[in-house]
């Protein structure tokens, strides 16, 4: 760190010193600039290549789902198919019954997320702002809920919901969500708790002095301030509900109730069976048949996550900003 006290490095004065013939410090400066440039180039290369790794599967998905049967058997086609066709998408939309199952997914994901928002924010506020006897017990139970894998209680829950006749309905997703549980509910309670802890007390006190009750203070003063947390919880909750297949596979066993992700699973299974079945019948056609079905599955996968991608595209900007302000990490 020899150069630190060197005045020649202080920004604009560099050119002045160069003209004054201060060769020694000029060299130092050039070395440092070179290092900085090299470092910058290196960082951009790393960032770009990592970004590529993240985007690569998406590109793969798009490219594969646009391919026609001819393109797959064509060895010259690697990424960009020679003709444009949406046949795979049309097939997938029809085979999956896309629109009706999209409705199911939206109902489950948005409904679950919305109710989770209500339940978790209320509980999070209680944990953040009040100190009552038994507080320590409840907060440790909250942490326990966060750590218990849902798989270890799925059998009793399943039997419980069966007793209530809630199988093949969406209640198993919606009701626990309202109580501040459900899919990773305790994580969301913790996020809200962390956010409310970071907010100043004065606003609440002012509201109370003005005569607002506890709940009123919470709804009209504190909740609007927790907007970043609301956005984060809402988005995460939608995404996790949408992509979940574990719980839907338990509770939803009628074709009309399936979510998109479940339907995608069945699309994949049936198409694989079809292709092997045909393989047995006409073996020379099997090679052409097998990959074609994969393109259809890829198209199905793409349209399954498409709503999420669109949602993310619009909220991305706020999302990233609010994550930073939520203090998810906190302490």
């Amino acid at each position: 760190m020899k150069e630190v006290h060197n005045p020649a490095l202080q920004g604009g004065r560099l050119t002045l010193f160069r003209w004054m013939g201060a060769t020694d410090s000029w060299q130092n400066a050039m070395v440092k600039r070179g290092n900085e440039l090299l470092w910058k180039v290196f960082r951009y290369v790393v960032v770009f290549s990592l970004a590529f790794v993240f985007i690569y599967p998406m590109l793969f998905l798009v490219s594969q789902s646009l391919m026609r049967a001819e393109d797959i058997s064509d060895a010259t086609v690697q990424w960009i198919p020679k003709g444009f066709s949406l046949e795979n998408f049309i097939f997938a939309i029809n085979a999956m019954g896309y629109w009706s199952h999209l409705k199911n997914s939206v109902l489950m994901a948005f409904g679950g997320a919305f109710l989770q928002l209500i339940g978790c924010s209320i509980a999070g506020y209680g944990f953040a702002r009040y100190n009552f006897p038994g507080y320590r017990i409840w907060i440790s139970l909250l942490l326990l809920t966060f750590l218990v894998p849902p798989q270890s209680i799925i059998v009793p829950l399943f039997l419980f919901f069966s007793d209530l006749n809630w199988r093949d309905t969406y209640y198993p997703f919606l009701v626990p969500a309202l109580f501040g549980h459900g899919l990773r509910g305790s994580l969301f309670v913790l996020v809200f708790m962390q956010t409310f802890r970071g907010l100043p007390h004065q606003l609440e006190e002012a509201a109370r002095i003005d005569g607002a009750g506890a709940f009123r203070t919470f709804v009209s003063v504190m909740l609007p301030l927790a907007r970043p947390a609301i956005l984060v919880v809402f988005l995460f909750s939608i995404v996790w509900h949408w992509n979940d297949t574990f719980f839907p596979d338990f509770y939803l066993n009628q074709d009309k109730d399936y979510t998109l992700n479940q339907k995608l699973g069945y699309l994949a299974i049936t198409n694989q069976i079809d292709s092997t079945g045909e393989e047995a019948q006409k073996s020379d056609d099997a090679i052409a048949q097998l990959p074609t079905n994969y393109q259809k599955i890829m198209a199905g996968a793409l349209i399954t996550i498409l709503p999420l991608l669109i949602l993310y595209l619009f909220t991305q900007r706020y999302f990233v900003e609010s994550v930073e302000r939520t203090g998810i990490a906190g302490d």
Binding site: L50, F236, L302, T304, I305, L308
Partner: peptide
């Protein structure tokens, strides 16, 4: 970089 959060769970990734 946050894209995986959206896509990485569920059946789509399994298919990939």
């Amino acid at each position: 970089y946050f894209l995986p959060v959206i896509v990485a769970s569920g059946n789509s990734l399994k298919r990939l």
